[in-house]
Amino acid sequence: MNLKQESNTPIYIQIAEWIENEIIADQLLENGKVFSQYQLAEMFNINPATAGKGLAILLENGILYKKRGLGMFVQEGSKELILSKRHNEKLSNLAKEIVEEAKRLFVSDSELIELIKKIQREG
C-alpha cells in the first residue's frame, strides 16, 4: 500500500484502514496476532507512534484486543463488524446522494420511497 502523506485522511487512519482491509481479505485471522507498532513502522517507513495511534483506534472500535505482554490480536467477529460498518457507510452515503438529488429534481419524499420500493420489487 502506498501511504499518502498528503491527504485529507490522517496517516494513522490510513494504517487502521489497511489493517481492516487485511482482516477482510483473511490475511489477518481472528484471534491471530496483529503487527506491532514497531513492525508497522518498519513496513511503512513511518514513526512507531503514528502506527501505534492506528492500532489504538482499532482497539477502541473493538476490532482488536490486547493481551498483556503479548501484543494486539484480532477480535472474533471483527471481519463481520468491519464489513457491516463499511456497508452501512457506503449505503448511507449513497442514500444521502439520492435524497439530495431527489430534492434538486423536486421529487417528494413519498414519491422517492415509492420509487425505491418499485426497484426492490423488480430486483
Binding site: 501511504l3 502523506q5 517507513n45 513511518i46 514513526n47 512507531p48 507512534a49 503514528t50
Partner: peptide, 9 residues
C-alpha cells in the same frame, strides 16, 4: 521537512 516528515512523531 518533506523529506523526513514520515519519520517524525
Amino acid at each position: 521537512l518533506n523529506e523526513m516528515e514520515h519519520l517524525l512523531e
